[in-house]
Nucleic acid binder design. Structure first.
Length: 566
DNA sequence: CTGCTTTTT
DNA sequence: ATTGTAAAAAGCAGA
C-alpha cells in the first residue's frame, strides 16, 4: 500500500471518505463545486503535483501522501475489511465487486477514467473534476456498504472482531509499511557476485553432463533431457507431464544420477538470485533508503496477513546459502534488530482448543513438546527418546494440525503406508481429546457450514457439501486446521495492536517492522532495549488467557539472522 | 494468463 | 471405495 497498486486499506477511499464526511455529501451527482470552500482540502490534494504524479491506477502513493502531510486519521470503518470478516473466502473484497453485488451499482473503472493500453493517459492528466467524481464515487459506495454490512456484522457477532482487531490493526500496519526495513546493499551485491559465478559454473556442468545446451528453466526442455534423452524413471506426474520438482530430483540423485544434483544446485542459486538478490535492492525506496512491503489484510482465508511488493514473509532461513540473504536485513546505525517468536503457538492452541489432558499437561510442564509427544506415543521414558523418535513425533504433530492422512505421512517419513497408519492410530490413542476435537470441528462445519476461531472469526466451508471426494476431504482438513491457524492469527494481531499502543504511550522511538505469522521483528533504540523486550514479551504472552501458557522467545542481533538461536 | 517450481510459517 | 499437508507470493516459460 505504501508503494503502489495492490491496496488493502487506507487508500484513496478513506481520504475521499473523510472529505465527504465533512461535506455530508451522499450523492455523487450533487457534489459541491470543486471551487467551493468545503472542497478545498480535497482540491489541494488532487492538485498537488507531488501527490498526483505518484498515483497508480487512481490510487495515491501513501509515501507521497505522507510527505504531503496527509495521515490516516478518523478511520472507523472499511467495507473491504467488513467483507473480509463476513466471508474471508470470497474471491474479491474489492469495492467495485462489493458495490455491484450488494448495491447493484456498476462503478466507474479506472479504465473508464483514463483509458487503457496505449491510449491511456496518466492519472495526473485527467481533468480534476473527473478525478473528484471518481474518488467520491468510491467514498459514496463505502458509506452505503457500511449500511448494508453493519447489520450483518451484528447478526453474525463479528462486530467485535472488526472493531476490536481488524480496524485498529490498519494503523499499526500502515505505520510498519511506512517505517520499512533497511538492507545492506554492499552485502547484497557481493552475494550476487558469488551466487552468479557459482550458478554459471553449475550451468556449464549441466550442459556438459546433458551433452547439450538448453534452457534449464524450461520444464518441457528439461523433461526431454531427463526422461527422453537420459531415460531416467518418471517418479511423479503433473497435469501436463512428468514432474521435475525437488522431491523427484532428490530421489533421482539418491539413485546415483549426477544431473539431478546439479539441477538442484542450479535451482537453489537461481531462485535466490532472481527472487531476492536482484529484486530487493531494486525495491529500496530512494526517499527513505528502505524496503517498504505491503501487508495485505484481506487475502488469506484463515485470517493471516500476507506480504507483497516485496514479500518479506518468505525470506530464506533453512539452508545456509539462503541464510546469507537474511544476514542482509539490518537495523539503522547503532540500533539493534529484535525478533519475538511465539513458541509452538499452533500446538498450544490445539492443546487449548481440544482440552486434551495429555497435551495440556505436557505444555503446563514446559520443556520440549515434540520430545514429550515421542515419549507418549512410543511409550518410553522421556530420557530414552532418541533423535529419530523426536523427529517423527514432530512430523506427526504437524501432520495432525494439517489433518494429514497416512499416505502423506508415510511419504514424508519415508516409511510404509501401514506403518504410518499405525503411528497415527497410536497418536490418537494417546491423544483422544485431539481426535474428538478435530472430529467435532468437521461435524460442526458440516452442520453449520463454517468453523470459527477463539475470537469468532469465521470461515465458510462449502467444499463439505461437494459430491467429489477429494474436494470434500479438502474441506475436512480446512475445518480441522482453520480454527487453529486462524486463532494464532487473531492472537498475534491483538498483540501487535497492544504493542503499538504501548510504544505510543511510553513515547518509544523503537519501531515494529515486520510480522511473519508467529514472529514480530523490531528495530530497537539502544537505551530502550529492556523496556521494549519486557513490553513485547508481555503483550504477546498475554494476548489471551489460554489453558496452557503462551511462550515467546526473544532474540537480538545486528542482522535478522543474528536474532535467531544458534 | 496458466502451470510449475520454490521460498516462508 | 475414494485423500498422497494448512496458508501465502513470486519468477519463469510458453501459449
Amino acid at each position: 500500500m505504501l508503494s503502489k497498486k495492490k491496496k488493502t486499506n487506507g487508500d484513496s477511499t478513506s481520504i475521499a471518505a473523510r472529505a465527504l464526511r465533512q461535506n455530508r455529501a451522499t450523492q455523487v451527482r450533487n457534489l459541491p463545486a470543486l471551487d467551493s470552500p468545503e472542497m478545498k482540502p480535497l482540491k489541494d490534494l488532487l492538485e498537488d503535483p507531488s501527490v498526483r504524479k505518484t498515483a497508480q491506477n487512481g490510487k495515491f502513493d501513501q509515501l507521497a501522501l505522507r510527505c504531503a502531510g496527509v495521515r490516516l486519521t478518523g478511520l472507523d470503518f472499511d467495507p473491504m475489511l467488513a467483507s473480509y470478516v463476513l466471508d474471508p473466502g470470497r474471491r474479491s473484497h474489492g469495492l467495485d465487486v462489493l458495490a455491484l453485488e450488494f448495491l447493484d451499482h456498476t462503478m466507474t473503472s479506472y479504465a473508464d477514467l483514463c483509458g487503457k493500453g496505449r491510449s491511456a493517459i496518466p492519472f495526473d492528466e485527467c481533468p480534476v473534476e473527473a478525478a473528484r467524481d471518481y474518488s467520491c464515487e468510491e467514498a459514496d459506495m463505502a458509506l452505503r456498504l457500511r449500511q448494508v454490512f453493519e447489520p450483518q456484522l451484528e447478526s453474525h457477532e463479528l462486530t467485535r472482531l472488526l472493531d476490536g482487531i481488524e480496524i485498529p490493526l490498519i494503523n499499526v500496519l500502515a505505520e510498519m509499511e511506512w517505517t520499512g526495513i533497511a538492507i545492506d546493499l554492499p552485502w547484497f551485491s557481493s552475494l550476487k557476485q558469488r551466487f552468479q559465478a557459482e550458478r554459471e559454473a553449475v550451468e556449464k556442468q549441466i550442459y556438459e553432463t546433458a551433452g547439450t545446451e538448453f534452457n534449464i528453466n524450461s520444464n518441457p526442455q528439461l523433461r526431454e533431457i531427463l526422461f527422453d534423452k537420459l531415460n531416467l524413471p518418471i517418479l511423479k506426474r503433473t497435469s501436463t507431464g512428468p514432474s521435475t520438482d525437488a522431491s523427484v530430483l532428490t530421489e533421482l540423485a539418491e539413485e546415483g544420477h549426477v544431473l539431478p544434483t546439479l539441477l538442484m544446485e542450479y535451482r537453489e542459486l537461481s531462485k535466490l538470485e532472481n527472487t531476492y538478490l536482484d529484486a530487493l535492492p531494486r525495491l529500496v525506496n530512494p526517499k527513505t533508503g528502505r524496503l517498504h512491503t505491503s501487508f495485505n489484510q484481506t487475502v488469506a482465508s484463515t485470517g493471516r496477513l500476507s506480504s507483497g511488493d516485496p514479500n518479506l514473509q518468505n525470506i530464506p532461513i533453512r539452508r545456509e546459502l539462503g541464510r546469507d540473504i537474511r544476514r542482509g536485513f539490518i537495523p539503522r546505525k547503532n540500533w539493534q534488530l529484535m525478533a519475538a517468536d511465539y513458541s509452538q503457538i499452533e500446538l498450544r492452541l490445539l492443546a487449548h482448543l481440544s482440552r486434551d489432558p495429555a497435551f495440556v499437561e505436557a505444555f503446563q510442564a514446559g520443556g520440549d513438546i515434540h520430545r514429550q509427544t515421542a515419549a507418549l506415543i512410543f511409550d518410553v521414558p522421556l530420557a530414552d527418546v532418541t533423535g529419530t523418535m523426536r523427529s517423527r513425533a514432530k512430523t506427526i504433530n504437524f501432520a495432525t494440525i494439517y489433518g494429514q492422512g497416512p499416505h502423506a505421512l508415510s511419504r514424508q517419513l519415508g516409511i510404509e503406508h501401514a506403518e504410518a497408519k499405525e503411528f497415527i492410530a497410536r497418536y490418537f490413542e494417546r491423544f483422544q481429546g485431539v481426535r474428538n476435537y478435530l472430529d467435532a470441528m468437521v461435524a460442526f462445519a458440516r452442520e453449520n457450514g463454517y468453523v470459527q476461531t477463539i475470537f469468532g472469526r469465521r470461515r465458510y466451508i462449502p467444499e463439505l457439501r461437494e459430491r467429489n471426494f477429494n474436494v470434500r476431504a479438502f474441506g475436512e482438513r480446512v475445518a480441522a486446521n482453520s480454527p487453529i491457524q486462524g486463532s494464532a492469527a487473531d492472537l498475534i494481531k491483538i498483540a501487535m495492536i497492544r504493542i503499538d499502543d504501548g510504544f505510543r504511550t511510553k513515547d518509544l522511538r523503537s519501531k515494529m517492522l515486520l510480522q511473519v505469522h508467529d514472529e514480530l521483528v523490531f528495530e530497537v533504540f539502544p537505551s530502550e532495549m529492556d523496556q521494549v523486550q519486557e513490553l513485547v514479551k508481555y503483550e504477546m504472552e498475554h494476548a489471551a488467557q489460554l489453558s496452557v501458557p503462551l511462550v515467546v522467545d526473544l532474540g537480538v542481533g545486528k542482522n535478522w539472522l543474528d536474532t535467531k538461536p544458534s
